[in-house]
Design a binder for these strands. Structure first.
Length: 577
DNA sequence: GCCGTTTTCGGCCCGACTGTTTTCAGTCG
């Protein structure tokens, strides 16, 4: 068995093969087939390697047929993707990486390779600096400069996507500035931003105006704009000072709905919708839904969905994960909202590594209308966070009792975020845990252990009857730290069987569980806790980021334990023991 | 290479922008 592959790795191989096939001039539909399969696997909540190991037929999944299933099976077991090895004999595999340079596609890479025998980004940079790229037919001085720009940018940002919460404070003000332009009736940030993905690759700004040209003029002149990549009458691309790319499109107000649908995506969702239109003898594009040349609907998303026989689908669900079938049968889930949350079950005070006092945290929860709040400072193992010993935990309990007496509008739950040690034991003894109302169990250390070890670690911890909520289950930090390697399928199954809730941690750097893992958790029958893991009063406002991911997983209020009233919540937690 | 209640063969999204090949190919989303 080769080193265990993550879905992301497998998708990477398929994507690489697709790039090389494209450079080689293969049938474009064959290229797309591998890309589609890559996307399917990247978005799958189950581990593809597990599926292969369990002999599950991969062709059950969309866009994976006999050949690709066979290739992936071989890849997982041997570390080799045969068609990739085959093409690598003719096309240097490193060329696939050159396609990441903005403005450089398969044709360009092929031409550069044939002319200069260049393989790598460094080769390309050298040839471009020497001014030789412009000699090539189809290239010129401007293209050469653009490629150098593209190389610089690729080196600066890599493939890294921007966290949604980091994109918001840049994108929203720009949106508001465009909205203030005379004649603009509406501006919406579409794309993965509107679908609330945890990270965004760029910002898709959609503007409704009868004078798109004026909007584009204003955009490229904006103070935040560092570089203009393209600039047209209805469409422009700019790079902002912090490196974030913005794709802006202007459309007439009466086709805003169709454009919004189109530019919100996902690509997969759009393809499925267009197919549905074609099945009815119509055509759907960014300008509207048409019967021949006759426009049927365009002004609103809801009207277009309705005409296609579908309920309006919330953007968070538009990933082609079965939402279209659900919209057809009227069985879309009623997604949870921020307002449905009655309390936060994971948060810290200055007793451990929180910034604010017990009283301040309670007041912050009251200001947000919460009915209860759990105080879950760290257990002793997390020493750097000033984790609480049993003695200090007892002191804190007295402090909570004293404070609680002053409030009649909120209930304070005594809790702890205990550490799951490497051997699966918890960092506080059972008799201490037994005195608490709520116990969040999380992994903070020893993140690089093997999959088998991590799985055993968590399964063993879950045997403890005091394990109530699995906190930030994979310990990932977006763009900074990979998730731990663990058999999520088995652990979520165990959580479901033991009535353990799994957390969606709303800290923007975590968002852990991820949307796909949260979806898997729901499929397994787990209940979910959406928690802020607040370390300061202002962190209560991060809740919406966790709710975004819960919605992307298709969660209703009923799936979330902290939408329950206090009695129901207590019963749920007690059913654990 | 995938897919399928009009199909196991013949489809597979397409429009905007750029730069360069003076009429369009390549790239992108």
């Amino acid at each position: 068995m080769a080193k265990r592959m993550r879905n992301r790795d497998i998708a990477g191989y398929c994507e690489r093969l697709a790039n090389l096939l494209e450079i080689d001039g293969a049938n474009p539909f064959r290229v797309r087939a591998w890309r589609n399969a890559a996307e399917t696997m990247a978005g799958l909540s189950q581990s593809v390697a597990d599926l292969v190991e369990s002999d599950i037929d991969l062709t059950e999944y969309p866009h994976i047929g006999r050949d690709i299933a066979e290739g992936v099976r071989t890849l997982v077991t041997t570390g080799h993707l045969p068609p990739l090895d085959e093409i690598a004999r003719r096309v240097p595999p490193e060329l696939a990486d050159l396609m990441q340079v903005q403005g450089l596609g398969p044709k360009g890479v092929k031409a550069l390779y044939e002319q200069f025998q260049l393989h790598t980004l460094d080769d390309l940079e050298r040839v471009a600096r020497e001014g030789r790229v412009r000699e090539l037919s189809g290239f010129g001085a401007r293209k050469e400069a653009a490629l150098l720009d593209g190389i610089r940018q690729l080196r600066a940002t890599g493939e890294q996507r921007t966290r949604l919460a980091d994109a918001e404070p840049v994108a929203a003000p720009l949106r508001d500035r465009l909205a203030a332009i005379p004649g603009v009736t509406e501006v919406t940030i579409a794309g993965s931003y509107r679908r609330r993905r945890a990270t965004v690759g760029d910002i898709d700004l959609l503007v409704a105006s009868d004078n798109g040209e004026a909007v584009m003029e204003r955009l490229v002149e904006d103070d935040d704009v560092e570089r203009v990549v393209s600039h047209g009458a209805t469409r422009s691309t700019v790079i902002l000072g912090d490196g974030l790319q913005v794709d802006a499109r202007a459309v007439a107000p009466d086709s805003f709905g169709a454009a919004l649908l189109y530019f919100t995506g996902s690509k997969r969702h759009n393809v499925a919708l267009r197919q549905r239109a074609v099945d009815r003898g119509w055509k759907l594009n960014e300008y509207g839904l048409y019967d021949g040349d006759e426009p049927l609907e365009a002004a609103s998303e809801a009207a277009i969905y309705r005409r296609l026989g579908l309920d309006w689908i919330p953007p968070e669900l538009r990933e082609d994960h079965g939402e279209i079938a659900a919209a057809e049968s009227g069985s879309l889930p009623e997604l949870v909202t921020v307002d449905a949350i009655r309390g936060n079950l994971h948060g810290h005070t200055d007793w451990s590594d929180g910034k604010d006092t017990l009283e301040a945290m309670i007041d912050a929860a009251r200001e947000r209308g919460h009915e209860y709040i759990a105080i879950t400072d760290h257990g002793p193992r997390v020493r750097i966070a000033n984790g609480l010993s049993p003695e200090r935990l007892a002191e804190q309990a007295d402090a909570i009792d004293a404070v609680a007496a002053e409030y009649d509008d909120i209930t304070i739950l005594k809790g702890c975020e205990v550490d799951i040690l490497a051997d699966g034991s918890l960092d506080l003894p059972d008799e201490v845990l037994a005195r608490l109302d709520i116990i969040v169990c999380s992994i903070h250390y020893e993140l690089r252990r093997s999959r088998a070890e991590q799985t055993e670690r968590v399964l063993r911890a879950m045997e403890n009857p005091h394990f109530m909520i699995w906190g930030h289950p994979t310990a990932r930090e977006i763009n900074r730290r990979d998730p731990i390697d663990i058999d999520m399928d088995r652990c979520l199954q165990a959580a479901a069987e033991r009535c353990i809730a799994v957390e969606i941690n709303a800290q923007p750097k975590r968002l852990d569980l991820s949307d796909t893992n949260a979806r898997l958790a729901l499929e397994k029958g787990c209940r979910i806790a959406v928690d802020t893991d607040a370390h300061a009063t202002r962190h209560f406002d991060l809740l919406r980021h966790g709710i975004d991911q819960a919605r992307r997983a298709g969660a209703t209020a009923g799936d979330i334990i902290n939408t329950r009233n206090l009695d129901d919540l207590r019963n749920l937690l007690r059913s654990r023991a």
